[in-house]
Design a protein around this nucleic acid. Structure first.
Lengths: 246, 246
DNA sequence: TTTATTTTATTGGTATTACCACTGTTTTTT
DNA sequence: AAAAAACAGTGGTAATACCAATAAAATAAA
C-alpha cells in the first residue's frame, strides 16, 4: 500500500490540496519550480506527478502558461455511497444473472459450486470476500458480453475505491455470511436451471437483503439525525417498488 | 487532435507496439535508456511516457528490474463489438429508465422534451447524435444514483472508444432517425406517467430495434461468411428471450 | 557437485543544470 | 491611443551524474 516512487507522494499531496480547496477549480497551480521547492524534490519529479494528474484527468497543462485544475476533478468518487452502489449492483447484476442463465456452461456452474464450498468452509472474512468476488465474476463472464463484464468490473472497482464503502460492506458480509451463502445458492440453482427470470429475482433478493442490512448496520451506529435521513432514503434505494411493478 | 507534448508520441508509439505484439503481455520493455535512443528523445521524456502508461494501467514498473506489460492491457477495447455494447446498454439503461421513472422531476421531463424537439427539427447527424446523447444522459441523472450514472457514462465512453462501433452506430442512427424519435417519445411518455415497467419496456424496445437494424446494416455490407456467424449470434444478442421470460 | 555467498552489471529513481519555445505582460515606439 | 517590440515567467526537452534496488554471474563454502 506504500507509494514507493516519490512522484506518487507529490500526486497525493497536490490531490489533497485540490480537495481541501487550497487550489480551487480552474485556478493555476504554482509553477513547477515553486512546487519543487515546496515539496523538496527536483523539478523532473514534479513534472512526473503533474503528468500522472493529467492522465487521470485532474489537471490541464497549458504550455507557457501553467497547470490548471480541471473542473469535475476530485469530487466524483466520494459521492457514491454504499446504498447507491448496492442498488446499482442489484439492477445491473440482476440483468447479468438473467443473461448468464441463457449461456452459462457446465464448467462455469462447477466453478460457481466451488465458490459456495469455499464460502461454507472458510470462516475468515478474507476468504469469504474472495469467494464472493469470484462468484459474481464467474456469472458476469458467463454472459459472453464484454460490455457487461466491464460494467460489473467497474462497479467492483467503485466499491474498492471508497474506504467508507469497504467498511460498510465488511460489517454486513462477515456478520451474515450464512444468509449470503443461502442467497448465492439460490442464484446458483436458478442458473443451473437456465431460468433467467428466477436468476434475476434471486439476485435482486440477494442485494435487497444487503441494502436492508446496510441500513440496519448504519442505523445501529449512527446518530439520530442520520437516522432520519436514512429513513427518508430507504424507500429511494429499496428495490421493492421496482420489483413489484414487474 | 495533435499530441503536442513529446511524451504523448512515445506513449502512442509504445501502445501500438504492445498492440501489434512487438511487446507481448507480461514481457519486459526495453530499458529506459534504450527506448530513449530508439525514439531519439531524452530519458526523462521516456520516463514521462512510462508514467502515463502506468497511470493508464497498461504497464507495471518494478524498480531495479524493468517495465512490464500488464495483462489486460491491449485487448479490452477491441473485443467489445457493437452488438455486445447495444445489448448491455439495453439491459442497463432499461433498469435506469425504470429507476428514473420513480424519481424524475418536471424540469428533467421538460429537458427531455426539448431533446425530442431538437431531434425533430435538426436533420444533420451531428445534432441528432447530440440530442440522443443528451436524452440518455438526462434519464441517467434522474435516477439520483451516481453509480448508475457512472455505469451509463462508462458505456458511452466505450462506444466512443472504438472506431468500428462509431461507424456502425452512425449508419443506424442517421438512417432511421424517425424511428429513434418515435421510440424516444415512447420512453418520454412512460417516464412522464412515472410508470417504471413501461419505461423499461420502451427502452428495451428501442435498443432491440437498434440491434436488429445493426444486424441488417452489417449484413448488407458483409460477406457471406460473416452473415453465417451473425445469424448464429442473432439469438445470442436478441433481447426477446429475456423479455418474454418476464 | 551442490549450495550459499559475494560481486558485478543492469535497471529504474532522483537531482542538477542548462537551454529552448511558448505565453502573457509590460514597455517602447509609432 | 494603438501597434510593435522587449521582457519575464512558464512549461518542454535534453544531458549528465549519482543513488538504490534488482537480478545475473562469479566466487566461496559445504
Amino acid at each position: 500500500m506504500k507509494n514507493r516512487r516519490l512522484f506518487w507522494r507529490i500526486v497525493q499531496g497536490i490531490e489533497t490540496s485540490i480537495k481541501s480547496g487550497e487550489y480551487t477549480v480552474g485556478s493555476r497551480l504554482p509553477a513547477e519550480r515553486e512546487l519543487a521547492e515546496k515539496f523538496n524534490v527536483s523539478r523532473p519529479t514534479i513534472r512526473e506527478a503533474i503528468i500522472a494528474l493529467e492522465v487521470r484527468g485532474q489537471v490541464e497543462v497549458k504550455t507557457g502558461s501553467g497547470v490548471y485544475v480541471i473542473e469535475s476533478a476530485s469530487l466524483e468518487s466520494n459521492v457514491v455511497n454504499a446504498f447507491e452502489l448496492t442498488q446499482a449492483r442489484a439492477l445491473i447484476e440482476g440483468e447479468v444473472a438473467a443473461l448468464a442463465a441463457l449461456s452459462i456452461n457446465d464448467d462455469e456452474l462447477e466453478a460457481l459450486s466451488e465458490t459456495l464450498d469455499m464460502m461454507e468452509k472458510n470462516q475468515d472474512s478474507d476468504s469469504i470476500e474472495e469467494a464472493d468476488k469470484l462468484f459474481h465474476k464467474i456469472i458476469s463472464t458467463a454472459t459472453r458480453n464484454e460490455a457487461m463484464i466491464l460494467s460489473v468490473k467497474n462497479l467492483w472497482s467503485l466499491r474498492a475505491s471508497t474506504r467508507e464503502i469497504i467498511e460498510d460492506y465488511k460489517n454486513v458480509c462477515s456478520s451474515d455470511n450464512k444468509l449470503t451463502l443461502k442467497e448465492h445458492t439460490a442464484i446458483y440453482l436458478a442458473l443451473k436451471e437456465k431460468d433467467a427470470a428466477k436468476a434475476r429475482l434471486a439476485m435482486h433478493q440477494h442485494f435487497n437483503r444487503l441494502i436492508n442490512t446496510l441500513f440496519d448496520a448504519i442505523e445501529s451506529k449512527a446518530l439520530a439525525e442520520v437516522q432520519r435521513k436514512n429513513n427518508e432514503k430507504r424507500d429511494l434505494y429499496s428495490l421493492e417498488s421496482l420489483v413489484k411493478s414487474k
